[in-house]
Computed example of a mutant assay.
Amino acid sequence: MTGIDLQGILSGAFVAPEVFALRPDYRALLIAVDGIRPAAGDAASEALLARAEESARAAVADAPVEEEPHVAAWREAYRAFGAKPQRTRNSLEALLRRAAGDGLPRVNRLTDVYNAVCVLHRLPLGGEDLSAYQGSPRLTRATGAEPFDTVAGGEDVVEHPLPGEVIWGDEAGVTCRMWNWRQGRRTRLTDETASALFILDALDPMTDEQLLAAADDLLAHLREADPDLVVAQRLIAAG
């Protein structure tokens, strides 16, 4: 265990009113976990990835990815703050397309599990290394001055979001651009991650029951490998 104050971090998390003004139906379910034992992918995570890929292929056989209800809702949300969803795809759409095409990446057990749950439950789901956080997560609209550390052309660079862009961040800068499009380098999961923050994003028509079911499924798979996992979670919604 790392001894991170999971509940304290989540208690300080917030979604700014200007984000809810864009989408009053938005909900963020934050799950903080500690006690992860880093591990490579195994038979259980491989089976989960395969099930997610099969689910994605069945979905695109019936209708284009962009017509999947939650994908369509996220495309509308992106347009609301000026993003072009055909060029900057929300993480759900990007993973669904990848799962239905060449297949999901095989990274490590932790990453493989949350990618599969994202596809199976049809919601954007981000995972980040909690030990790299400075303060609590917050979802705001950018001024354009916030630093975002990423990689471009094989080099580490610092970029900045567009003014008005919806961003996740902490006291040190941006952790994810365009709501759930691209995660930063500083807080990315690694093969040594022992504590993690998962962010599950929901818009209508996804219900709270479906959102919580995705969270339960994620935790069930994580606990298969780490039954003594310490967990804290918090649902943030308008009002």
Results as ranks from 00 to 15, higher is better:
1 M>Y: 07
1 M>N: 07
6 L>M: 10
6 L>Q: 04
8 G>H: 10
10 L>I: 12
11 S>N: 13
11 S>H: 12
12 G>M: 10
14 F>T: 03
15 V>S: 05
18 E>C: 07
21 A>H: 04
23 R>H: 04
23 R>T: 10
24 P>E: 14
24 P>G: 09
26 Y>M: 15
26 Y>T: 02
26 Y>G: 01
28 A>C: 11
33 V>D: 09
34 D>L: 10
36 I>K: 01
37 R>A: 13
39 A>V: 10
39 A>K: 02
40 A>P: 08
41 G>H: 03
44 A>T: 11
45 S>Y: 02
45 S>D: 06
45 S>K: 00
48 L>D: 11
50 A>E: 15
51 R>K: 15
52 A>F: 10
55 S>W: 04
56 A>E: 11
57 R>F: 05
57 R>H: 07
58 A>P: 04
61 A>N: 09
63 A>T: 09
64 P>Q: 05
67 E>A: 14
70 H>I: 05
74 W>Q: 02
77 A>F: 14
77 A>V: 09
78 Y>N: 03
84 K>W: 01
87 R>P: 00
89 R>N: 02
91 S>A: 12
95 L>I: 00
95 L>C: 06
97 R>F: 00
98 R>N: 00
99 A>I: 10
101 G>H: 08
102 D>I: 12
107 V>C: 07
108 N>S: 14
109 R>P: 03
111 T>W: 10
114 Y>S: 08
115 N>E: 15
116 A>G: 11
119 V>S: 06
119 V>M: 09
119 V>D: 05
121 H>W: 13
123 L>K: 01
123 L>D: 04
124 P>G: 11
125 L>P: 00
126 G>A: 13
127 G>M: 07
129 D>E: 12
129 D>R: 03
132 A>P: 04
136 S>N: 05
138 R>K: 14
138 R>L: 13
139 L>G: 03
142 A>C: 04
143 T>G: 14
143 T>S: 15
145 A>F: 09
145 A>H: 07
146 E>V: 11
147 P>L: 09
150 T>H: 00
152 A>R: 01
152 A>N: 04
153 G>S: 08
153 G>W: 02
155 E>V: 13
159 E>S: 07
159 E>T: 13
160 H>G: 04
161 P>E: 12
161 P>W: 00
162 L>K: 05
163 P>H: 03
163 P>W: 02
165 E>I: 05
166 V>P: 02
168 W>P: 02
168 W>L: 15
169 G>P: 07
169 G>N: 06
169 G>A: 08
170 D>A: 08
171 E>S: 14
173 G>V: 12
173 G>N: 09
173 G>A: 09
174 V>S: 02
176 C>P: 01
179 W>E: 01
179 W>N: 03
180 N>D: 08
182 R>E: 12
182 R>G: 00
182 R>T: 02
184 G>C: 11
184 G>L: 08
185 R>Y: 01
188 R>L: 07
189 L>H: 06
189 L>E: 06
189 L>W: 05
190 T>Q: 03
196 A>S: 14
197 L>F: 11
197 L>W: 09
203 L>S: 03
204 D>E: 15
206 M>G: 04
208 D>E: 15
212 L>S: 10
217 D>I: 00
219 L>G: 04
220 A>M: 10
222 L>V: 05
228 D>T: 15
228 D>M: 07
229 L>P: 04
232 A>H: 09
233 Q>K: 00
234 R>C: 09
234 R>I: 11
235 L>E: 11
236 I>Y: 08
